[in-house]
Simulated scan of single mutants.
Amino acid sequence: MTSADELRAHLLEARLAGPVATTREQSLRRYRLFAARDPQVLLGLEPEQDWPLAELLKLMHDRCGVSDDPAHISGLDVIDPDRTIDALDSFAARVMAVAEAGAPVLLGTGHPHRLLDFYAALADALSAAGCRILTPAYGRCIDITTRFGVRTYNLDYVRGVALMRDPGARSARSAPGVHTHSPLPIRTALGAVADALTPLPALVIGDHGWVCGAGQLGIEAIGLADTDDPALFVGEAEGRVSVAVPLDDAVRSDYYRPLTRYVLNRACLSQ
């Protein structure tokens, strides 16, 4: 069991919160792109209101703890660990609610190298609680626009968690998948569920386009987000994302294990 105090200390030691590896320059660049409604940064969200840079800074300060001073343009971003813990409490509450209902859940990640184990542990616990872990559109080819041009990836599932793979890298023993921000995988997965005339997920758990894409389509979604991913926090502010947890989403995968224990304990799903 991990207490809130123990988790807070771990967040700071592992640099999941406090000063994180994400630079202020990177965050500000993405805030400007979001304000300009660049699709690569919207992650599938269609904001209901304008979000100029000044308003985004205020929001990110409120949700993450980053500086809201526009004159602060360099250095490392800072996440308030207490905001992370508060958000994890809300995240765990939604996990517990769907577990108690035994409702279907879909999990997906654009950070499989780092976050696969975190989501897989949730999938295992929710499955044990009686939830159906959805795996629609398995193997489907999806064309995704990247900074290197359009790339074709395959939708795969590992331990109940959706991710994208390069064609030909479908074995669970191979590389864990590719990094993507695209909402196309969740749109494809949800489309396959609808075509099969089976129940849609009551909750989508993930990051990047998995969360924003689901929320935009009216599916409840919760997830993890770094300071340079404002879309999840805007989605939360506008009511289309239930919970966005601020943390560094690209540290070593084993550093997320205390977060797993904390969430499962708070959700009353500890084995």
Rank of each mutant, 00 (worst) to 15 (best):
R159I: 01
G168H: 07
R170E: 08
G168S: 03
T188P: 02
S171G: 06
R165M: 06
P183G: 13
P167Q: 05
R170T: 02
R187T: 09
A169E: 06
I144D: 00
D143N: 14
H181I: 05
D156I: 10
L184I: 09
S174P: 00
A189W: 08
S171C: 04
D166M: 09
R170K: 02
T152K: 15
H181Y: 14
G191V: 05
V158A: 12
I142E: 04
P176Q: 06
D143T: 11
F148S: 13
P183C: 14
S171E: 08
T188V: 14
L190F: 01
V178N: 04
R151I: 06
A172P: 01
H179D: 14
R159S: 10
G160P: 05
A162I: 00
P183W: 12
P185C: 04
A169Q: 07
Y153V: 08
R165D: 01
H181E: 11
A192P: 03
P167K: 07
R159G: 02
T146G: 01
H179G: 04
P167C: 07
R147A: 11
I142M: 08
A192R: 13
P167N: 06
P176N: 04
D156V: 09
A162K: 06
G177T: 02
A192T: 04
R165K: 14
R159F: 05
G160A: 08
A175I: 05
L155R: 15
V150K: 13
L163E: 00
I186Y: 01
T145A: 14
R151L: 09
R151K: 14
D143V: 11
R173L: 09
D166Q: 09
H181G: 10
A189M: 15
A169I: 02
P176E: 02
D166N: 09
H179E: 12
L163Q: 02
A192E: 13
I144A: 00
A189F: 04
T145F: 07
V150S: 10
T152Y: 04
D156Q: 15
A172T: 04
G191Y: 06
R147V: 07
R173A: 11
M164D: 00
A172E: 04
G168Q: 03
A172S: 06
S174Q: 11
S174C: 01
A192N: 06
H179M: 13
T180N: 13
I144Y: 01
G160S: 06
Y157V: 11
R147I: 04
A169M: 08
G149Y: 07
L163R: 15
N154W: 10
F148A: 15
A175Y: 07
T146F: 00
Y153C: 08
N154D: 06
R173V: 05
Y157I: 08
L155Q: 15
I144S: 00
V161Y: 06
A192F: 03
L155F: 03
A172V: 05
R159V: 00
S174I: 00
D143G: 12
P176H: 04
A172I: 03
A192D: 15
R187S: 13
Y157R: 14
G191S: 10
G177V: 03
P167R: 09
P183M: 12
D166E: 12
N154C: 10
G177C: 02
D143P: 11
F148M: 11
A169G: 00
T146W: 02
D143K: 15
R159Y: 05
T145R: 15
A162T: 02
V150E: 09
G191L: 07
L155A: 11
A162R: 11
I186C: 01
G168P: 03
A169T: 03
R147T: 05
H179W: 08
M164K: 02
